[in-house]
Amino acid sequence: MHDLYNFVTGPLAWAAFIVFIAGSLYRLINMLYLVNKKEKFIYTYMSFKYSFRSIFHWITPFATVNWQRHPVLTIVTFAFHICLIITPVFLLSHAILWDESWNISLWALPDGVADIMTLVVVGSCIFFLVRRLVLPEVQYVTSASDYVILAIVAAPFITGFIAYNQWINYQLFMILHIISGEIMLVAIPFTRLSHMLFSPFTRAYMGSEFGGVRNAKDW
């Protein structure tokens, strides 16, 4: 167990973080390289004011017509994304590890709150899964990869929750939790989870076009 633990929290964790960070940078740099090479005109239309105007509307629940049209989805998706990012960063156990490894002392969530947030993430994943299976317009454009990325996202939270509660085979689930977290990190730059990286840019560009050229709202 020690060897396995040392491996998944040592070299594997390093590898996962390096792939995540370097991969993300690579994807972003590659995108900017492509813009430079072929669509340099994009820069002439980019505007900070309109980019942020657009981003601000879309990251605010119910601030856009489409968010208003889908109240349940809006609540779920905002809760999901907030919990998805906040929970792993500020989880007490993770904060301890941040501190032990890097001497970074972060504020930590109370475990009870983190527990609820984890359930929110898992519940949201189930919601998204059901949505994919049930709604024809979503089903129609769903491919196997959509289920895979959903599973990749849900896995660290499910395993983490089981491990934290120590229901069955604690050590196994801890190892699974760590590995699934690492899989998710690695998957971010190289799957459509990369919307985490790209969506601010696509949003900003559309916001700039609508604000600067079209004089219209894009929300």
Binding site: H2, N6, Y170
Partner: peptide, 12 residues
């Protein structure tokens, strides 16, 4: 960790 013995994960 040094001795490779004993509990190392939170819940242990």
């Amino acid at each position: 960790l040094k001795e490779k013995k004993g509990p190392i994960m939170c819940g242990e």
